[in-house]
C-alpha cells in the first residue's frame, strides 16, 4: 500500500523563554486506507501532532509528507490549498457554524475549495443521506443533537473527497450510545477506502482501529 503520510523526526517546541517540548523526534508512517488511533494522556501531544499533520501549525524541526508532498516546506497559502484538497478534519466540539444550516455547513467546505454551487448542493445532500440526516438538511446546529452535529461535521470533512481524514476526539463530547453510532460511521468510511487518523482518549473507539499508537510526553511509546 502507498504511504499516504510519512512523518520523520518531528519535533515541536512551544515558547521562547520557557520552552515546552510538545513533540519529541516523532517518526510515523501511515499507509493509504489505514485506520489509526493515537491515544495517550492529556498533554501527551496528540492534538499537536494532528495540528502539524493538518498544516495548522509549523513544526520546530522534522519532515511531514502527505501524498508525496513535503508539507513542512509549504507556506500558509499552499497549506490552505493542501487542507482543502487532501485533508478533512473533525473536531471534538464539532465546530459547525451556528448561522448555517446542516447543508450549508457542508457546502462551506466545498465553497472554499471553489466547487460550483450546483455540485455543492448535490454532494451535500448525498453526504447527509449517507449520514442518515437527509431530514435535517435545513436544521441549524442548535436544532441538532450532539451526535447529529458530529455526523454533519464528519460529512463536512468528507465533502471534498479528501484522502486523509483527521479526527480529534470525535466522540469526546458524546454519550456512549451516540459514540457507538459515530464509530460505526467511521468504520464504514474506512471500509470505503478513507485513511483515518483519530486522536482519542476513548479506548473503545481506539479498539476499532487497525493500529493503535500510544503517546507519552511527546514521544511515541508504542
Amino acid at each position: 500500500m502507498f504511504d499516504i503520510l510519512v512523518i520523520s523526526k518531528l519535533t515541536k517546541i512551544y515558547g521562547t523563554k520557557v520552552k515546552t517540548k510538545a513533540l519529541d523526534n516523532i517518526s510515523l508512517t501511515v499507509k493509504q486506507g489505514e485506520l489509526i488511533a493515537i491515544t495517550g494522556e492529556s498533554g501527551c501531544g496528540k492534538t499537536t501532532l494532528l495540528n502539524l499533520i493538518a498544516g495548522l501549525d509549523y513544526p520546530t524541526s522534522g519532515i511531514i509528507k502527505i501524498d508525496g508532498i513535503e508539507t513542512t516546506k509549504l507556506n500558509d497559502q499552499e497549506l490552505a490549498i493542501l487542507r482543502s484538497n487532501k485533508i478533512g478534519i473533525v473536531f471534538q466540539f464539532f465546530n459547525l457554524f451556528p448561522i448555517l444550516t446542516a447543508t450549508e455547513n457542508i457546502e462551506l467546505a466545498m465553497m472554499i475549495a471553489k466547487k460550483s454551487e450546483d455540485s455543492q448542493q448535490k454532494r451535500a445532500m448525498e453526504l447527509l443521506k449517507m449520514m442518515g440526516l437527509a431530514n435535517k438538511a435545513k436544521s441549524k446546529p442548535n436544532e441538532l443533537s450532539g451526535g447529529e452535529q458530529q455526523r454533519v461535521a464528519i460529512a463536512r470533512a468528507l465533502a471534498n473527497d479528501t484522502k486523509l481524514i483527521l479526527m480529534d476526539e470525535p466522540t469526546g463530547n458524546l454519550d456512549s450510545k451516540t459514540s457507538q453510532d459515530i464509530m460505526k460511521y467511521i468504520k464504514n468510511l474506512n471500509k470505503d477506502g478513507k485513511t483515518i487518523i483519530i486522536a482519542t482518549h476513548d479506548q473503545t473507539l481506539a479498539k476499532f482501529a487497525d493500529r493503535i499508537i500510544i503517546m507519552k510526553d511527546g514521544k511515541i511509546k508504542k
Binding site: 497559502q77 490552505a80 487542507r83 478534519i89 463536512r156
Partner: peptide, 16 residues
Amino acid sequence: KREIGILKSLGARNSF
C-alpha cells in the same frame, strides 16, 4: 476568531 480558525482548517486562504 474561532470561526476564522475553523475556516482556515477547512482550507480557507488568507485572501478568503
